[in-house]
Design a protein around this nucleic acid. Structure first.
Lengths: 348, 348
DNA sequence: AGCCGTACAGCAAGCGCTTTCTATGTAGAA
DNA sequence: TTCTACATAGAAAGCGCTTGCTGTACGGCT
């Protein structure tokens, strides 16, 4: 039914082997022959059979990208950057590669299942983005999977995720701890002493590291933290809204609210406004990530910019072997404090 | 090196055929045998070879999702919804499928290349999201490709994209025209007579349809449009910012600005604010799509809500053959006008 | 007792490509 | 001119799986 290599070979009056070589360009073929083959390919509208090719060559042109939430620009930006570098259509170098963006929804099972699926497809590389879940059993399982993948020749890159020791995976880690500390220090520097913190879901490295940075800053300045000042919630707007109301209920004297990320911060802003509080006059707000929309908030959000696109692009290049892995297989990517209108001196 | 079906068969003391049948569950196998096989699979940590399986069975478990910009939540939301329905990990029914989200960047070449790549992988289904480019040659090429795909048994679904006649593709189209008309009528109803319009990139169906809806509304109310009132630009914040300044320069008496989508509208808001204009007191602003962040703008954005997640989910089900295609292969998905704080009566 | 239907299990032929090894023609070297 | 070397092209052996067809046993039938 469909056109095969043999059909093309017949039409071009050459052997299938030659057609394969023309298509792969990895073996000398006389110019005249090549032309004849290419013409036949064109005339027959031939499309290579990917699975067959992958089977025979024992390699595939699939690259997997795992994200926690594809609808979240945090991941979208990284995924897009990775994709732009893996040489897919539009990419520079050679072989066209297909980027597979897999949405784990932040659940351990789906993450594992997708890794297996990618392993099954003999993916050329896998990039895992964003924080990891801190469930012991799950972490072990993922580490084992990653080791299997690297052993099978799949390049594994972690982007914005803590290193996975002894797995052969290369890590480009975000300095969430440092960013969190810097952000809170900025607030402390402005005079804040009573700071609420809206953390992300528990059992997530990102959540924990950012919170640790925050606490380090508090401790460094001799501020004793009140347990009521921390609330956990999802990484979305509504969680930020509700957490802020809760925070206000617990301690109406807070002068600043630090959110786990920008989306949460936006929810916090809405809650403050709905509570009749002005930003930053009554309460300062800070986010994390510096997603594109953060500058559009009113007032613009003070946050920590993470170079998502740059990190993603680098992860893509490393995954394609187009850039050397960092020494030790681990690189730390720092964030940059962006001071904007949502933070100011506390009301006296 | 790696474990194969034969290894499992040897260990379980059965033939490879039996192992295959156990794994696929499409042929009667005695319970005791099945157990033995499953145990061997587990012990050997066997992972099926996807390409080999796809080659032999002439089918694959890949589903392609084409998006114009993966970093844009508009597409992220749809892609996520599609993915949640195609039975990938976490999905209900049977075979695990791998969703391949491909980022075309809105360029014709990449769109075509990705379709070829998907065709090469013998994808089980392909979902194209978002507006199409209106380049004659390109449209013909895409249509030809889609026809090839459907002929080869790949299910093709267009989600938020105009129908592609005679290709066998099923279309779930957004009523951009109707939404655009309704939005502008709302503004006209408030008393606006001088409305600026920030359109998306030219040669895009989405851009054209929304603009047509806008003009239809104007015409229906006897408002003669000034050509200076329309500016084209990219679908991003910066384009909205610049276009708004341009609009203001051309005609400072405008009382409303309608943007091609919410992201652009946010840029417009920023430009208006920076120009010292209040929203909606001095100028009303309206967007399109109702992305999650739109309600967080200050004031909240008046816009047209598109049921992105619902449409994506439906597209996913149709692609998997889990839901019947709409009659005639075409369904129109309507938007819903969301009136919020960014629109009000014009200053008198 | 003899037959047949049913329920499993195995054999073996591919699926469409890649790649090693071999064959051939031609050009330069001796 | 004869031999060697190189540049190409082809033959054929798989890659690891699926599946149609062919056994083989066993139980129920007549």
């Amino acid at each position: 039914m469909t056109v095969t290599l043999a059909d093309v070979a017949a039409r071009a009056q050459v052997s299938p082997a030659t057609v394969s070589r023309v298509l792969n360009g990895n073996y000398p073929v006389a110019a005249s022959t090549r032309e004849r083959v290419l013409k036949a390919v064109d005339e027959l509208d031939y499309v290579l059979n990917g699975p067959a090719s992958a089977l025979a060559a024992a390699t595939s042109d699939l690259v997997g990208i795992l994200v926690n939430d594809i609808a979240d620009p945090f991941f979208g930006i990284m995924a897009g950057a990775v994709q732009s570098e893996i040489g897919g259509p539009g990419g520079r170098a050679g072989g066209e590669r297909l980027a597979v963006v897999c949405n784990t929804g932040g659940t351990p099972e789906r993450e594992l299942t997708y890794l297996t699926l990618l392993q099954r497809q003999r993916a050329a590389a896998v990039v895992l983005t964003g924080g990891a879940m801190e469930d012991g059993a799950h972490q072990t399982a993922v580490a084992a999977k990653l080791r299997k993948l690297t052993e099978a020749g799949t390049r594994v890159v972690l982007c914005g995720r803590p290193p996975a020791p002894d797995t052969g995976a290369i890590a480009l880690t975000f300095d969430n701890r440092g960013g969190g500390r810097e952000l809170t220090e900025h607030l402390i520097g402005l005079g804040h002493r009573r700071l609420g913190y809206i953390a992300g879901p528990e059992e997530r490295t990102t959540t924990r590291h950012r919170l640790e940075g925050h606490r380090t800053a508090l401790a460094a300045h001799g501020i004793e933290e009140d347990p009521r000042w921390t609330v956990h919630g999802r990484y979305d707007r509504q969680a930020g809204y509700e957490a802020t109301l809760e925070l206000l209920r617990r301690d109406p004297t807070l002068t600043a609210v630090v959110a786990a990320n920008d989306t949460v911060a936006l929810g916090a802003c809405a809650a403050l406004r709905d509570s009749g509080l002005r930003i930053p006059d009554d309460v300062s707000v800070a986010g994390f990530d510096d997603l594109p929309f953060s500058i559009d908030a009113v007032p613009a959000l003070t946050t920590v910019r993470l170079p998502l696109a740059e990190a993603g692009a680098r992860a893509g290049r490393v995954a394609m072997g187009r850039e050397d892995a960092p020494v030790g297989g681990i690189a730390t990517v720092r964030g940059e404090l962006m001071v904007r209108g949502s933070s100011g001196r506390p009301r006296s």
